[in-house]
């Protein structure tokens, strides 16, 4: 395995060839904030929280999708990046309904955690709060579109790990929404295997177990990484 060496926040770090800046940073205990990324799933670079400054690049680059290059110089913490991350989180919080107190994921929500970590104390934008449906037609699970941040983890886990591709996205811009099958009620879906992977990877309270009450939804998104590792090992045997 060939090795790449690069500088991250003035620290010299080695990475495997093809490894992302994010993965290399994690291995060395350097946290870069993320939301859409989940180990074991493909990366999409959509939430923009992991943007970092790369010397020689005019644009900020997402650490989750950018491969480490030999000798590159990366900065993942700066006042400018902090301001951008805070503003992005504000935009998230203002987009739909993120009133935490009554949410099933309160205290176990990745959006909430990121906002706290980044020091978002208030939101400068108008809360848009569109009235979106809540689909409770599935036997065991529910989807509350008002809580969805369109990270597409459910779409990816269903397609890439479960192989069902029940979830997808419909509409564009701020009208975009996650859907099951051809925008049919989840309970009527013929492709859904009711495996619940989507619920476990969802970073907010958008996908939940119907039995959960406020604050009661504790998820285990790290199962994807474990499962993918196990599969890879089995294949190589």
């Amino acid at each position: 395995m060939s090795v790449r060496t690069f500088t991250l926040n003035d620290q010299l770090i080695t990475a495997a060839a093809g490894q992302s800046i994010l993965a290399a940073a994690r291995e060395h205990g350097i946290a870069i904030p993320t939301l859409c990324e989940l180990e074991g799933l493909s990366t999409v670079g959509a939430c923009r929280l992991c943007l970092v400054e790369v010397a020689g690049s005019q644009r900020l680059l997402p650490a989750c999708t950018t491969e480490v290059q030999e000798g590159m110089t990366v900065v993942s913490e700066s006042p400018r990046l902090k301001h951008y991350r805070q503003t992005i989180l504000e935009l998230f919080l203002a987009e739909r309904n993120h009133v935490c107190a009554v949410c099933v994921s309160n205290n176990h929500c990745e959006l909430q955690n990121r906002a706290v970590e980044q020091g978002v104390t208030h939101v400068r934008f108008d809360y848009l709060m569109p009235t979106l449906p809540v689909d409770m037609s599935h036997d065991r699970f529910g989807v509350d579109h008002n809580r969805c941040i369109l990270c597409t983890r459910c779409v990816r886990v269903c397609d890439e790990v479960e192989g069902a591709h029940t979830w997808d996205i419909m509409g564009r811009g701020f009208q975009a929404r996650v859907i099951t099958d051809m925008a049919e009620p989840w309970g009527d879906s013929t492709s859904c295997t009711s495996c619940g992977k989507c619920v476990q990877v969802c970073p907010t309270g958008a996908l939940f177990d119907k039995r959960a009450t406020a604050g009661g939804m504790v998820k285990q998104p790290s199962f994807v990484k474990v499962l993918q590792h196990a599969r890879a090992r089995k294949e190589s045997q």
Binding site: V44, G45, A46, C47, R48, I88, L91, F92, A94, E95, F125, D126, L128, I149, L150, I169, G171, R172, G173, F174, Q175, A176
Partner: peptide, 21 residues
Amino acid sequence: CRDESCGKCVPCRVGTVQMHR
């Protein structure tokens, strides 16, 4: 831009709505 944003990334999807407002 707001109407043509694809909706994938937040700054564009929500930022254009807020700027338009």
